[in-house]
Design a protein around this nucleic acid. Structure first.
Lengths: 333, 333
DNA sequence: GTGAAAGCGCTAACAG
DNA sequence: CTGTTAGCGCTTTCAC
């Protein structure tokens, strides 16, 4: 059954302290003892008990990553970046899916505290940062992912979502579109709010007319729903901007089902530039974000804070989004 | 800073044992004491230290889920099923990405042992089951996910991949295709091996000619590579079957880039029926698997083993795949 | 019903 | 360089 450090010590004929040294400070152990102990360790497939191990030091080499939707390729790409960066520093990553629900988020946050993770990377489901303070109070490092920090006591890695919204609208304007539908998720999701801000700003500057269609969730099915609302509009716009690619893909499918040609009749633009955007029925024009780098940067910031807390100073990194032009947008006819 | 059970005891004017009872066996504590202690707990935001907590009992309410590719929507769908089922039983899920690499897989397995997870759900990167025995020897329950168990000492939840391969080929045969390209991943991945078996069986039964194009990984970029090999074939087949949708989407993109019409010139069929298959340039015919249910079933089996080890008997569940017909396959011209 | 005390498996002083 | 020992925070007998 499960063997303990004591078993190893007994079998190797040394003390538990020495075995502990072999595990944690091999350099101070004599070569013979080292070899002897390691032999026993591998013979009985000994793996130290992480609980007990970090009971004293207080923390494990583990971080938590809480994202609002693992089914969204944007976040799996971010996760991949986080994992690669963590792996380099020999940390393991607990990936948690909050499903955009603050309740689920809170549940996972508690689980992460119980697991005594060293730090947490999170894209919060809403703007309330209080929940995060209970992590910080426990000495767990927190860095915001895909969200700008308003507090100076934490790091954040974000993409300029306001600018992203602006870019999308500016692109449509440059193609001659003057009435635009803007399919957005709940205002409580900061990304949605910010992109909406950019949309509003660009619209105001140009005098274009933007109608907002609100959806409760950011997935393809909701995109299909959104198109119904779109077609019921009194004056049907000539272009649609969706708050993410999943929505856009749903809209696109519904448009084609209705026999509406894209981009000849309606121009469509998404957000995130997920891998599938290129493979879509009409390759999707989208606002591209550096997902993988976002993950890497966030993990590096967090782990720097964990490992070198003393010399670490918080920083806010902001990436810029850019337009990825494809075939789903075109001149207004 | 971090407060301990002792702090709670002091503040509530009771002993640590009583606080422990409040946490674990509230029914045996008197109502007044219960209220008093709970008040203190919520006042100081006390969360018990999971390490110490399960140091005695040996295990946490945590399971590990090891998948070969989180970027594949098939596995995120499975993960969602696992998470929902685990959540119901109040377990948290550690999601790990082996990237189809046995080395990474082993690293995560060790991390999971250290975290003292209660059980592990895994789609192993290869056929070697020995690694899994070291988990079982430690009393960690293991159930295979998307893989049939050859041993009777474990549960498994799988989809009949041999049959899936067969169905795909039979479909192409029924459309009149007699020369088919089969784009498959490494034979070391059991899903690939099994689907290949089905392909071979169907081919043999019908006398159709199947050419295998081997790719090192199962993603869209490799699909694009595969098409180059396809076009270099001496006698170009009239249909392509890909071992998963990611590959098929890559192949599709490359076909359209070459100006080859689908399905008029080449028929294409994928595997997994991921959500994006419907949104593809040419909606993709695919072999559909019940991903979500797969996850739910596997988690339930695993947790039953964890919580009711005594009355649990191992079982092997096998789901059947089915053909999801769309526009990417058609009659041979 | 509640408190005291003995560990769970390990790390980190400290002696030797 | 190695052994001894005191906890880490909690659960769990066992008295009271």
């Amino acid at each position: 059954m499960t063997s303990s450090l004591r078993d190893v010590a007994r079998l190797a004929g040394v003390s538990v302290g020495t075995v502990s040294n072999v595990l944690n400070r091999p350099s101070i152990v004599s070569p013979e003892t080292l070899a002897k102990v390691r032999k026993v360790i591998s013979e009985i497939d000994f793996v130290p008990n992480g609980f007990a191990r970090h009971l004293r030091s207080g923390f494990s080499r583990t971080i938590g990553l809480v994202v609002p939707d693992v089914a969204n390729p944007f976040f799996t790409e971010v996760a991949r970046g986080v994992e690669d960066a963590a792996s380099k520093r020999d940390y393991a990553v607990f990936l948690c899916n909050s499903d955009e629900s603050t309740a689920k988020e809170e549940k996972y946050l508690n689980a992460l505290i119980e697991q005594q993770v060293r730090g947490v990377l999170i894209t919060p489901a809403d703007n309330k940062a209080e929940r995060l303070n209970i992590l910080r109070d426990r000495g767990i490092a927190v860095t915001l992912l895909d969200r700008e920090s308003k507090q100076s006591n934490q790091c954040s890695v974000a993409v300029d979502d306001v600018r992203g919204g602006e870019i999308a609208i500016e692109h449509l304007l440059s193609l001659g579109h003057e009435t635009i539908a803007w399919v957005n998720g709940p205002e409580s999701i900061p990304q949605c709010a910010d992109r909406g801000l950019g949309v509003a700003r660009a619209a105001k500057a140009s005098g274009a007319s933007v109608t907002t269609i609100r959806v409760p969730q950011m997935n393809a099915d909701q995109g299909t729903e959104a198109l119904k609302a779109f077609l019921a509009l009194e004056k049907i716009p000539t272009a649609i901007f969706c708050a993410n690619d999943l929505l856009a893909l749903g809209v696109l499918r519904a448009l084609l089902n209705e026999g509406i040609r894209v981009p000849e009749e309606i121009s469509l633009i998404g957000y995130d530039d997920i891998a599938f955007a290129r493979s879509a029925a009409i390759p999707l024009t989208s606002i591209s974000q550096p997902a993988y780098q976002l993950g890497v940067a966030a993990a590096e910031l967090l782990l720097a804070e964990c490992d070198e807390a003393a010399m670490h100073s918080h920083q806010q990194i902001r990436f810029q989004p850019r337009l990825q032009l494809r075939q789903s947008t075109g001149e207004r006819r």
